[in-house]
Design a protein around this nucleic acid. Structure first.
Length: 670
RNA sequence: GGGCCCGUAGCUCAAUUGGAUAGAGCAUCGGAUUUCUAAUCCGAGGGUUGCAGGUUCGAUCCCUGCCGGGCCUACCA
């Protein structure tokens, strides 16, 4: 509602200015929120208009105020020095629409969106870095769906890479295990943990003696060839680990629709199709000399073709047909896509894959069902042949790739390739949802028993490394969070059944974890620390959950249902209570409650879910203050009591709603 | 060397993308009607926003130059 009202206001101010200054070129109207509610609910700085309209800011503000006329939902406009137009919402009007849960009509554009996230190599257990990725991605999916968009969720599986080969080598060469033995192991509950250790051991083993790396190369080649023992073992391992990843993410309510695998991109020859087009359009050029002799290369993204192109002079000779790229790219700026031995690197495969995403490749995967979630939702996986009936994946209007900032150059290269192929629109709808990594604080690393050099100890954080087995496993962290929450629940609610206490502890743990991963802005490196991650107080998920539990318990005690509560107040009474001298602080709560849709829009536009976390916290904080100041059930004035109850019902509803978008549910009691 | 990101309270982070007196949590200290449950609330201290210039009505935010830190920069995936 807040968003809706803001748009209406902006429109009216624009019309008003256009009427008064028909010839002036108007700058954009910026609507902000004043630093204090006492000033108003919206603020328009008038300074930017002073120059184009050749008038003093205060004069312009006054002109708008006196000429704009009445606006539904707006109570008052006020001119404030040095040059602000402060606007007050009609409190009773907003409260009434909120009480009815009347939402602005959806105006979502059509077109399917593909969000890809997680993409964990299927050779070891997921760690906290993967958790940040999956939680950011899943929350973004929820944001889009809340805004009315249709979304497919994909998790890309690189099951043919060298990391998988390494684990195969570990099992076959270090542990001397047969395929049958590995298969038995893979059915154990935390097979991915076993792989985690083996992966770290193999990496050490390679370093001990370079000759050991021969096993790695042989295994990698065998896997690429297919139809042999190492390939079968690789498939066995990667599939089992993938299942584990899906289970881990399912603990956090994170689900996928489709798992495209690199093996199919290989076997279904996606690259061949892409390669043809890339050669035809001159995106790739063949190097005949220098260090990249014999390779097909691309210009590295951001190395200046655009700048050169924009000042191209007409007398420059046109490129002839057999030489599509006349422009020579310096070695520094070359990105090798196809090696001199004819094999394609991962960026090349990624280009082909993204052509498929936009329906530009002319080929498709085979599909079969792979995993069924407890709620009966099916997750599909790519295969060469596949089932006849399957949902239609790919061929989407927009994509978001949730991948950490280290991959931004590769992502830009794929976008540039799409552009070079002439798919500017697709390139424009390709968003690299970039975020910074999760690292460990030196203290945390020491707690986990890792050896630290003096240099490491002086750093503010240390990067995790799967190869070195250095990091915090996702399931371990979730287990710890649940155990820690369980201790609290046990002491607070000994009367509840074991099963119920565990259920509550799990909800709190997930709330704490998801909130923790979302409260930092994307570009901030999270220096992971158990103390902060395990905290249930202050700016945390449980803080917000607790606010909802309090709200619920008021209604429980009153014998009412929060969901269906309708107050008997008249509009005049709403006005009276909201405009009361002490009413500002209650109004702030209503105002915050009206902002959910506004914040969701903001999160989507900026691909920044942290705003939602901030909104949830602010709402919970305002509610807790309100809760503390106003005893409700003992309120003697029945009219006022009704009003206070409605305030609780609305705050509770919006908190539950916003938490749900973050993937957080609320326990019955805490 | 080149590209991207970061530097804000003791610590971890915000600041609606150029707006009003730079805000939260943690930590520290001091308090809260035996109440709709204290996983809560109230209060206090804590700041030359890395440094130096510039742009303008206005700069934590934009520009330039330094200082410090991180990531990327493989014919690995």
């Amino acid at each position: 509602m807040y968003r809706h009202l803001e748009r209406r206001l902006a429109q009216r101010v624009l019309e008003c200015l256009q009427r008064r200054y028909p010839d002036a070129a108007l700058p954009n109207i910026v609507i902000e929120q004043p630093p204090k509610v006492e000033l108003g609910d919206y603020a328009i700085p008038v300074f930017p208009f002073a120059k184009p309209l050749r008038s003093a800011p205060l004069k312009i503000a006054e002109a708008i105020r006196s000429e704009i006329g009445p606006i539904e939902g707006i109570a008052e406009l006020k001119v404030t020095p040095p040059g602000y137009l402060n606007i007050r919402i009609d409190r009773a009007w907003l409260a009434a629409t909120l009480a009815r849960d009347q939402r602005a009509p959806a105006e979502a554009p059509s077109g399917k969106i593909l969000v890809e996230h997680s993409s964990i190599n299927p050779n070891k257990a997921a760690h906290i870095g993967h958790l940040r990725n999956a939680i950011l991605g899943d929350t973004f999916v929820r944001l889009l769906r809340y805004a009315g968009r249709e979304v497919d969720v994909q998790n890309y599986i690189d099951n043919t890479g060298v990391q998988v080969a390494d684990v195969v080598v570990g099992f076959t060469h270090l542990e001397k295990k047969s395929r049958a033995e590995i298969e038995a192991l893979s059915r154990q509950p935390r097979f991915d943990y076993h792989c985690w250790d083996i992966y770290a051991r193999v990496s050490q083993w390679y370093e001990q003696d370079k000759a050991n790396q021969k096993a790695r190369l042989d295994t990698l080649h065998a896997i690429e060839q297919g139809a042999n023992e190492p390939a079968a073992i690789a498939d066995l391992i990667s599939t089992a680990v993938l299942r584990r990843h899906l289970e881990t993410m399912d603990r956090l309510d994170i689900e996928y629709d489709f798992l495209p695998r690199e093996s199919e991109i290989l076997h279904l020859h996606f690259w061949d199709a892409a390669f043809q087009k890339l050669k035809q359009t001159g995106v790739l050029s063949y190097e005949t000399e220098g260090k990249n002799k014999g390779c097909w290369v691309m210009r590295r993204a951001g190395t200046g073709r655009a700048a050169v192109g924009s000042i191209t002079t007409p007398q420059e000779p046109e490129a002839s047909d057999n030489e599509p790229t006349a422009e020579r790219v310096s070695e520094e700026d070359q990105k090798v896509i196809v090696r001199s031995n004819g094999t394609v690197g991962y960026v090349g495969k990624d280009i082909a894959y993204h052509m498929w995403k936009f329906g530009l490749l002319g080929r498709d995967f085979g599909y079969c069902k792979f995993y069924r979630y407890p709620n009966q939702h099916d997750c599909w996986i790519s295969t060469t042949a596949g089932q006849k009936d399957h949902p239609h994946f790919g061929d989407v209007a927009e994509i978001y790739n949730v991948i950490d900032a280290r991959q931004s150059e590769a992502q830009s290269t794929v976008i540039e390739a799409l552009r070079g192929l002439g798919h500017d629109e697709a390139a424009g709808h390709y968003t690299h949802f970039s975020y910074e990594m999760v690292a460990l604080t030196p203290r945390c690393a020491a707690e986990l028993g890792y050896f630290l050099s003096d240099e490491d100890k002086s750093r503010s954080y240390i990067e995790v490394s799967g190869r070195r087995g250095f990091g915090v496993k996702a399931d371990d962290l979730i287990d710890q969070l649940i155990a820690s929450a369980q201790k609290e629940v046990d002491s607070r609610h000994p009367e509840l059944a074991d099963e119920e206490r565990l259920q509550i502890a799990a909800q709190i743990a997930i709330g704490a974890l998801r909130y923790f991963m979302l409260k930092y802005t994307k570009q901030s490196v999270i220096a992971f620390d158990f103390k902060e991650a395990l905290s249930f107080e202050g700016e945390t998920g449980p803080y917000a959950q607790y606010a909802v539990v309090r709200a619920t318990s008021i209604f429980k005690k009153a014998g009412l249902e929060a969901e269906n509560f309708a107050p008997s107040n008249s509009t005049e009474e709403f006005t009276q209570f909201l405009n009361h001298a002490s009413g500002n602080e209650i109004w702030e709560l209503w105002l915050a409650a009206s902002k959910t849709a506004y914040v969701v829009d903001q999160c989507i536009a900026t691909t920044e879910p942290a705003y939602l976390a901030k909104h949830v916290f602010q709402l919970a904080q305002l509610f807790n203050t309100f809760y503390h100041r106003h005893p409700i059930l003992s309120e003697p004035d029945e009219k006022r009591k009704q009003f206070l109850l409605m305030t609780v019902a609305v705050a509770r509803r919006e908190l539950i709603r916003a938490l749900a978008i973050m993937g957080i549910t609320v326990p019955s009691v805490m």
